[in-house]
Design a protein around this nucleic acid. Structure first.
Lengths: 213, 213
DNA sequence: AATTATACAAACAGATACGTATGTTAAAAC
DNA sequence: GTTTTAACATACGTATCTGTTTGTATAATT
């Protein structure tokens, strides 16, 4: 039953799709390759032909959706300082919109949140860490730029603002993904962002009052 | 080799301790009962004598540390409205202190964060949800009390403040527990809380300015 | 048109984990 | 002091999963 190149690519993709669903439902460690094979309508033979083992399958799966998933803020912020806070808030909101709309990403993210990492998935963990660190640096710089020109409220330092933002996003997403998404991620998330960023900014009332006095 | 009651209780405890370490290191699903038995210096026979299976062992383990772990805010807040925000902030800070000092709780929490839940651990998930819901209601009420007497900044509603606080705590703890605790949980956490609660409060500048105008 | 390599399915072998059944020893119970 | 029973250890059978090997039909190659 030799298939054509295109057909083989199809089965490869169907295996990846099945793996995504099965890993999401049963967890990476408890799911067997036979589970994946049955879900894909093939045998383990097909899986072992396209992938070397379960870890490799998971890594390939991770790579397929990795690129768009990586960064909330993709590059150094080159905005005027007055717009920086607005830009970060919009980027974070946009990132939430995309996650809310893309079930693909939701499953991958959930799998990553739930997987133990400890065993042979260390490369994934390390990559995540690295992306996270780069991200933190960029946010720090952006908030520092805002701070240097007086757009960041005195309560907040660049570092503390970065952390507050990251923790809020992380808690928000964990809550939604791990605990059965019982609320509207995009609207509630952006609402929370709005309030947080309001407290980052000089509040209008304060600013007015200060200039008036 | 029949042991006395006290000795049996000892082995039972040593099994629980071993399970905590092994589950923490290998994850609940990938750890075998033989791993736990070896770590405890017994055989699987002892485990099956004290517990019916791995799920039961995990549930018992969860119950042993459940009570102190449950609530950040233990009961309805009966403080004067002026002190409510301060009380919540202190409670959250105290909860972080306790977590940072108790490796026991750290492991259990990490295990809970990493476990897939999907299979036979649903009762744990449901219990967590229930505790979480009660907690949310209490926080909502507490923030509402603060709001009703003007101690909550206009930017924030009771609900949004509750969510911001919970998400921050969740993100903070996830970051620390899942990603190798690369910072000081208690100090950095309380610092973040301080800034968040500052933005909850009427900022002194604003309050003064408003009363002055 | 014959050959070869591809894309799998099916069969096989080894390891591992689980649950249970059985054995054993010493503490309790009488 | 004998019997019973609690507290395990050991042994067994079975299911499952993994990785590899073998088989096979067909696309691609020549």
């Amino acid at each position: 039953m030799r298939r054509t190149k295109a057909e083989a690519e199809e089965t490869r993709n169907s295996i990846l799709n099945a793996a995504e669903r099965v890993f999401f439902e049963k967890g990476v460690s408890t799911a067997s390759l036979d589970d994946v094979a049955k879900a894909a309508g093939v045998t383990r033979g097909a899986i072992y032909w396209h992938f070397s083992n379960k870890t490799d399958l998971f890594l390939e799966l991770y790579n397929t959706v990795n690129l768009p998933l990586e960064d909330m803020i993709t590059r150094e912020v080159e905005r005027p300082a007055a717009e920086v806070l607005c830009y970060i808030e919009k980027s974070a909101g946009h990132w939430l919109d995309e996650l809310a709309a893309d079930e693909h990403r939701q499953r991958i993210f959930t799998i990553l949140l739930r997987c133990a990492y400890s065993d042979e998935l260390l490369p994934v963990l390390e990559k995540q860490q690295e992306v996270d660190d780069r991200h933190t640096v960029m946010l720090d710089n952006a908030f520092a730029k805002a701070k240097s020109e007086g757009f960041l409220n005195g309560n907040w330092t660049p570092q503390s603002a970065t952390k507050a933002l990251c923790w809020m996003m992380e808690g928000l997403c964990s809550d939604w993904l791990l605990f059965g998404r019982r609320f509207d991620l995009a609207s509630e998330g952006k609402d929370g962002l709005k309030r947080l960023f309001d407290s980052f900014r000089q509040t209008p009332a304060t600013a007015e009052a200060l200039t008036a006095s």
